[in-house]
Design a protein around this nucleic acid. Structure first.
Lengths: 207, 207
DNA sequence: CATTATCCGTACTCTCGGGTACGCTGTCAA
DNA sequence: TTGACAGCGTACCCGAGAGTACGGATAATG
């Protein structure tokens, strides 16, 4: 509400940048990517269109930064979840699974995934910044479990795919297509069941 | 190439309708939904824009019919796959799994799923005509396996979700976001592994 | 305090695609 | 045979939104 005018110091400028991204994310959630105009974003952020174009290049550039910002947040969330449980892999994986479902079915993720479908460039960013980065974290964790003899999964990448499938099933694509998102209770139950099945499938063979 | 003019008899009219839908599908695959204009569709189908609007209402209506057409095809494919194997459930489910992967990662399905992301109405059609319909077929099949004592899966819906997750994992969303589609060999291997794991997880308990 | 780089607000241009109107032509039905 | 309809081609309208230009206001900076 404070009309900011004149040049901004670096710190303030960084905050304004986040304000703009936040405004864009809200509008994508409310109206969808296609129906959100640069004018709407500028209006909600209390900025001018010219500033948007000066800072982000164009609508795609702005959206790209939005995706990267979200990917940063989710990567930290994954790392944090895997640190839970005090070394108990089931607890850590369950925390990760729950977080994954919460993230993927959350409005911001849904809006950005839909947006990415409309632009190959954005899709690439989302895939690399989001999925692949988180995948590496989890694969690395599963690889360590394997080497520690906790599970029998020589191919950590494949094990990650298996876990992912058990957790997510068709939930994400369903929500992207308009199905209601699962409740917190549902997510927790799914996470537990998925990890239990995962452990059963990759149980370490007695040597 | 034959310039069709004058009123069309019913049979011919039906063929022209398919021609138009086929043209639209090709263009969606080549350029994406958003970048495909009604003029392009009319041009490729050798029809006039006015005819498109007269027959389909608007772009969304045309796309809706396209989705329903594809759903019809895929429902028959599912039914056919489940009939394979001469009563061997593993063979039938493997055929289904392979077909599912082939369908979901195929260019037409990818193009239509991306299109549906841009419109809640289209998303609803795709979800109901496609996913739910196929889901009912498979759930019904799994329910029969359960009642026959072949598997232990009292909740057929949940069992379908599990099978789906084991088969598809993150492949569909990945392809939608631009990852390369899996090869036929990869699909077959995935289908076999998924069904093998599925059977292990829902193995009938010895009573 | 003067200066200057920003930044807001607004108004503007331009392109593009959805949707419509219309005349011409060819084919089917009476 | 002949009307009348259906469908092609083309030209057109219009709204909308991306991106730009510019004047005026303002706060950091020296």
């Amino acid at each position: 509400m404070t009309p900011r005018r004149g040049r901004l110091p670096a710190a303030e400028r960084e905050r304004r940048r986040r304000d703009i991204l936040r405004a864009a994310r809200e509008l994508y959630v409310e109206h969808g990517y296609g129906a959100t105009t640069m004018a709407m974003i500028a209006r909600r952020a209390g900025a001018s269109k010219e500033t948007l174009y000066a800072w982000f290049g164009d609508k795609e550039g702005l959206t790209r930064e939005l995706i990267e910002w979200g990917a940063d947040e989710s990567a930290s969330a994954v790392a944090a979840a895997l640190d839970q449980g005090d070394g108990d892999p089931v607890a850590a994986l369950t925390a990760y699974a729950d977080g994954l479902l919460t993230l993927l079915t959350g409005p911001p993720s849904v809006a950005l995934n839909r947006a990415a479908m409309a632009s190959p460039a954005l899709a690439r960013v989302l895939r690399e910044a989001g999925r692949q980065r988180a995948g590496r974290l989890v694969s690395g964790y599963l690889g360590r479990l394997h080497r520690a003899g906790v599970i029998d999964a020589p191919d950590a990448e494949a094990a990650f795919g298996l876990l992912y499938g058990l957790v997510v099933q068709d939930t994400q694509i369903g929500v992207l297509l308009g199905a209601p998102a699962p409740s917190a209770r549902d997510r927790a139950a799914r996470a537990r069941a998925a990890v239990e099945r995962f452990m059963r499938l990759v149980a370490a063979r007695p040597s």
